[in-house]
């Protein structure tokens, strides 16, 4: 399981990739593994303002359903519509093709309050075999 060092992580298993005044959001490899086969992702309308910790969408797997929480404040400026037809992209490629939304960040400094990869990984429960 990998946790790219350039990303920041939430306690609810989302990642944020800050790119200047913008940031891309998805869920971690650990999160997709816990959820199992993802079957549906509901994403917000473009233009919606989201607040840190607030639910911006919903993700469903065969056995579970979870809210997706925004790591930071911002405005939704793009969303990954490919997930509508191929939600399995989140399983296959959680950090690239499985991205969810792109935000215009209200306050890029908020990102520094998120965990780095090492801290996120350290907080994960020990993984079982298989």
């Amino acid at each position: 399981m990998e946790f790219p060092p350039q990303l920041r992580y939430t306690t609810s298993d989302e990642w944020l990739h800050v790119q200047g005044r913008e940031g891309v959001v998805g869920i971690t490899d650990h999160a997709q593994d816990q959820l199992g086969d993802i079957v549906f992702v509901e994403l917000p309308e473009i233009g919606r303002q989201v607040k840190r910790g607030e639910a911006f969408g919903v993700i469903e797997s065969v056995k579970a359903v979870c809210d997706l929480h925004t790591p930071v404040d911002g405005e939704v400026i793009a969303r990954n519509d490919a997930l509508t037809d191929a939600p399995e992209l989140v399983n296959r490629s959680p950090y690239a093709d499985g991205w969810m939304i792109r935000l215009r960040l209200s306050d890029p400094a908020q990102a520094t309050e998120l965990r780095d990869a090492a801290a996120y990984q350290a907080a994960l429960p020990a993984a079982p075999a298989h």
Partner: peptide, 10 residues
């Protein structure tokens, strides 16, 4: 199918 709507999951 589409069981994420249902009480035992949600």
């Amino acid at each position: 199918t589409l069981q994420a709507r249902e009480q035992f999951i949600r």
